[in-house]
Design a protein around this nucleic acid. Structure first.
Lengths: 313, 313
DNA sequence: CCAACTCCATGAATAAAATTCATACATTAG
DNA sequence: CTAATGTATGAATTTTATTCATGGAGTTGG
């Protein structure tokens, strides 16, 4: 019958994304490839795996049986791979992590938890780089990994892309814009913009949306933490630009609504900045891999990045 | 990293057979294919999986880790495949089995045990066809499957090959022939040959060894059960021709030794004879597959058969 | 009801991979 | 040392997987 792991990974991606198109993107394949692949598998098993007419696709009992198999096996493979990587390289290392983006706690904490259980010998530390420049600290060796959406070319520093996300404008559900698909820069001219307390040239909403249109909002106020910003937005004290994945939980509670920035939206990429020399160390490689996996498990509507001057997945 | 099940199956075959050559045969591939495949895997994992210089090959810790993974995963896949087959076809059926070869109990009992746990709705029965002709009973429908090494072309009957084995001559360890690699037909002229109590034209030792050379042994006596035959051989009462796999346990006890029949040896194939109309039924398909697996797990020195007018594995 | 979308299927072309073939190399037993 | 057996390897080949280009089917919003 010759089921291969490839087939199982495809089925899982299909379930997780809900469409062949999105599953294909996540697997770095085309929609056509997946269609053929699943058709071949169905032909060989002599049965259908899922109903294509519905959205999301409905899996048949056979499809569900294979998904069950996949859910058992893929983590086993992952664990084995990790073990092999550990057998190859040293087990110990230091991983001092710094985040620039407050929202990142949301996925970083689970990622670190998962990582720690496999790499007990790695010395982990996590700091927030709001009051200092983390990049020089990374170069010096005070830090080992910086999470940033704002790569600056520095010799010896490598940016490994984690995922792409869309920057969204959060507004109160009572706001006059609620229901609009997107807003233009000029419309912000009478609004209060709530941001993280960092330099404005490190905020996408300025560098990629307002500044190109030469627009300034009526006022800018800052808040340290995402829940606080959402609270302010919900109570009509202003609007805030945040990554889509940081907002999904509030969207579900319907305290806020979101709009695209411009008709096509503003997309960013989150990177792990590391030193060249640690690029190949097993414990680093696995941390990044674990982070990416955790992100795709926990965050909605994020996209893969092929590889931007980094190694592919 | 993209480990695939293919790689795991190869590693298992390598461990089970002890050489790339034999593993390749079992997987219906060439030795070269396996060599390339394992090399690629090692390249991608950036480590070696086993030491080739020793025989049998010694697996590295990485290789052992992957074997562990394989031993966990392959049975899971097998179970899932079985479940899928069951989901597709009906769950019930009748399987009245008949054996012509006494030794077959050795693998058939475990095979039936394994099978029964997955197909509780199939009515199983096992009889020995020593005192009647099982083939007509199969055609009539009194039987559903006959284990035989002696396929006779009958319309409506299909022979699915299970494995190939070598017919060996068992002699006492004190016999003058002990240590010889093989014997020629003429040398049997002064020996007592112990056989199963069936017509001599259904015994390979006559049809394919003695008769072509127009030789008769000094005497022929019969015994019903393999242990009894071995007992007679061990005590010097004669020599017996039996399939190699039926003799391994006695070889280990060193009560007997074995010789090839002729310089090249006599090889036979064991078949499952079934009716054409049950050839595609899921419960039959799985019984045969389970039998083959059980044989390769339990019997030593048997070989695969590609497909003799039957479907491949 | 009709664009304009989005998603999926499909045949043909293409790329990638796995496998074989033909050998050479290595090891072991005699 | 030689024969026998097992493994490695480059090149050719075959097979498989994937992409490309396209059409059809179902949805959505004017």
């Amino acid at each position: 019958m010759m089921i291969e792991l490839r087939h199982l990974r495809t089925l899982v991606a299909l379930r997780d994304t809900g469409s062949l198109v999105d599953a294909a993107e996540r697997l770095f394949l085309t929609q056509s490839a997946l269609s053929h692949q699943l058709k071949d598998l169905e032909d060989r098993l002599e049965c259908t795996l899922f109903v294509r007419k519905t959205r999301p696709p409905r899996f048949t009992s056979t499809g569900r049986r294979l998904l069950k198999l996949a859910d058992e096996m893929i983590p086993m493979v992952r664990t084995a791979e990790r073990d092999i990587v550990r057998l190859a390289g040293g087990e110990a290392g230091r991983l001092h992590i710094c985040i620039e983006c407050h929202s990142c706690f949301q996925w970083l904490i689970p990622a670190i938890d998962r990582y720690r259980s496999h790499w007990s010998e790695v010395e982990l530390d996590l700091t927030a780089g709001f009051n200092f420049e983390p990049l020089p600290a990374l170069v010096r060796g005070d830090l080992d990994l910086v999470i940033t959406s704002d790569p600056v070319d520095v010799p010896g520093i490598r940016y490994v892309p984690l995922f792409r996300y869309e920057a969204m404008l959060a507004v109160s559900r009572d706001h006059e814009w609620a229901g609009k698909p997107y807003i233009e820069p000029l419309e912000l001219i009478h609004e209060t913009l709530i941001t993280y307390p960092v330099d404005r040239n490190r905020l996408d909403v300025f560098t990629r949306f307002l500044d190109p249109a030469d627009v300034d909002p009526a006022a800018v106020r800052t808040a340290e933490l995402t829940p606080m910003m959402v609270q302010l937005v919900a109570s009509g004290r202003g609007v805030a630009c945040l990554p889509n994945w940081a907002l999904t939980e509030y969207l579900e509670k319907q305290t806020i609504v979101v709009l695209k920035l411009g008709a096509t939206g503003i997309w960013g990429t989150l990177f792990a900045a590391i030193r060249e020399d640690q690029y190949d160390s097993p414990f680093m490689e696995d941390f990044i891999q674990t982070s990416i996996e955790t992100c795709f498990n926990n965050l909605s509507d994020i996209k893969t990045v092929d590889a931007v001057g980094g190694k592919s997945l």
